[in-house]
């Protein structure tokens, strides 16, 4: 049915895509959460409002969020060379994936935190909570449903980014679809690679939605 598909290679590239998505996703979660938290607390009078820190971090986030991903990869080639040692393969795609996705996720985290009723923060303050206690006992757990749904959306975006990274030398299904499928006019390869990418996206979305339903206690 798919005469040109080498299933072994297809499987291998699927794993490469999953590998890039998960590693970049994990790092994006960590950096994005930290950045988003910094954005929130430096812009919230009840926490540690600091105009200058907010402006700097916000500008940084905006710049990297605005650069089209395909251009970001090219811009980051020298940086990637220093950090990873090569610009080819799945691992070489990671710096660009993380730098592209973390600012995007940081804004989502900031929005999630802003959704928290300020009264709850005041209540914690009135009970003698330190700022740090407010962060990890109030802000993080209260925003967790939105933080999780945000990472779900971000992971889906990262899957898309991996495909673009594939075109300029990264590994994975995108690379396969482009080099083997498109450039050699093997439409069946492109088709199977696309279906596999869709499956990965659906699985991520499914798990994310299930998790959010489980942790969201805001509705009865």
């Amino acid at each position: 049915m798919f005469p040109n598909v080498d299933w072994e290679i297809m499987l291998e590239e699927t794993w490469q895509t999953i590998y890039m998505t998960l590693v970049a996703g994990g790092a994006t979660f960590a950096f994005g959460l930290a950045l988003g938290m910094i954005l929130y607390v430096t812009n919230e009078p009840l926490m540690m409002k600091n105009r200058s820190i907010y402006t700097v971090v916000s500008a940084f986030v905006n710049v990297f969020r605005s650069i089209p991903f395909i251009i970001l990869i090219i811009l980051l080639i020298p940086f990637t060379k220093i950090v990873v040692g090569t610009i080819l393969g799945s691992t070489a795609a990671l710096p660009a994936l993380i730098i592209g996705a973390a600012p995007f996720y940081a804004r989502m985290v900031e929005l999630a935190l802003r959704e928290i009723d300020r009264g709850v923060i005041e209540a914690a303050e009135s009970m003698g909570a330190t700022k740090w206690q407010i962060i990890y006992k109030v802000l993080f757990p209260e925003a967790l449903p939105a933080i999780v749904s945000g990472i779900t959306v971000t992971l889906v975006a990262i899957v898309g980014y991996t495909a673009m990274a594939g075109v300029v030398g990264g590994g994975g299904l995108g690379n396969l679809a482009f080099l083997d499928g498109f450039q050699r006019s093997r439409n069946d390869v492109t088709f199977v690679a696309t279906v596999l990418i869709l499956v990965i996206v659906f699985v991520i979305q499914f798990i994310g939605d299930r998790l959010v339903t489980r942790i969201d206690k805001r509705s009865a």
Partner: peptide
């Protein structure tokens, strides 16, 4: 508080 300000989570 008037609006209770409980933690939903």
């Amino acid at each position: 508080f008037q609006h209770f300000n409980l933690l939903w989570s």
